[in-house]
Design a protein around this nucleic acid. Structure first.
Lengths: 197, 197
DNA sequence: GCTTTATGTTGTCGATGTCAACATCGCTGA
DNA sequence: TCAGCGATGTTGACATCGACAACATAAAGC
């Protein structure tokens, strides 16, 4: 069964998203251009406006996809670890790994001010990523491996740490040039605020 | 009598820098425009090119000024604290305070990839800010208040933590709406990785 | 089959970054 | 003193961009 080819292009919305992600990866989020995305998708410079309200809206869609991918990466990394603290730590490492491997994606997701009301789906995906973190913290507290208290506060602490490492790494402020080097440093940072074992 | 408007501005370079800082504060680093800077300085749209190679070069100059200001803020905050750990902590808080008070400045300084060779003065100013941090860590180690080891590594740890808090705060990801609230959280984060007293 | 509506195109506008050519000023050296 | 030269500022132009409007076409529904 050949997939249905409903309209002129096929599935332009998805094609535009993919083109956008690749373009952002090549030229960065700043030099990124709506017209070039259209060119790569093989459509006219105004076709994207049938699927996205404007440039910002397309970028928000890219960010939303990134949040989902990030959530998946953290969940996968945490899964299968018997020690709950290891789950939390591995999720943090997955956060940094995602940032290092997809720096432009990460930049699009977190550099712009959070504009929840303008892009509800992106905000929803972001919230889910954070909830994942909060959940891991909660489990640690329930098992008595982490001081009790507002789990949200501890999740924000964890988030701040890995976010700082990730951001400094992808902007070239850390002296580690390989993913492994960055992750080793990230582990060092995470261990600092986790209870000694 | 008011003298006729001189053909030459006098100190255009400084005026452009000031206009740029205010404009970035008003519209953000993205919407920032070279032509608007020129307009505000009362010169033609091409005058800035006599003082800066291009838009990026002007922004780099703004960033350089920011690094100096940040260094000053950290030095001032650290000074006068008898406990060396308090000096380190206060410097970290000053870092976050700077970010919250001048978010656009902070963004310009740290969002773009470090391009040391293209903007040597900005790189130099940034290096000095980091050296301040390393110096504080060293003193802590020398007085036996911090585990010994590569001071640069600990400085990077401290930097990562406050940078994460700062970045999440100014992009609206933290639930704290006042500077004081953010700083309280920053203190909480810093305390997590400082030895118990 | 004909209409409606979603999707894509062409044409256009104002704004931007940057280059080239020109204008004006202030300093320097004869 | 003053001519001229380099530094500083202006005008004009060009390609490109995001966005809007008007138009074209194809899919879907009656």
């Amino acid at each position: 069964m050949t997939p249905p080819k409903p309209y002129h292009h096929g599935n332009l919305r998805e094609a535009l998203l993919q083109s956008a992600i690749r373009l952002i990866r090549e030229v960065g989020p700043t030099a990124f251009t709506l017209r070039e995305v259209a060119r790569r998708a093989g459509v006219s410079h105004n076709a994207p406006y049938r699927h996205f309200r404007n440039k910002e809206d397309l970028i928000a869609a890219v960010a939303a996809e990134g949040y989902q991918e990030l959530t998946g990466a953290m969940v996968t990394a945490a899964a299968g670890q018997p020690d709950v603290l290891d789950r939390l730590k591995n999720a943090g490492l997955a956060y940094v790994r995602f940032a290092v491997r997809k720096p432009e994606h990460f930049t699009v997701m977190f550099d712009a001010p959070a504009s929840g009301h303008r892009h509800p789906d992106a905000a929803q995906a972001a919230k889910q990523a954070f909830s994942t973190l909060v959940g891991l913290v909660k489990v640690c507290q329930e098992e008595g491996r982490l001081v009790s208290g507002d789990p949200g506060r501890y999740a924000l602490l964890a988030w701040s740490m890995v976010h700082g490492v990730a951001k400094l790494a992808i902007t070239g402020r850390l002296p580690y040039r390989t993913t492994a080097g960055v992750l080793k440093f990230a582990a060092f940072v995470i261990d600092q605020s986790l209870p000694r074992r």
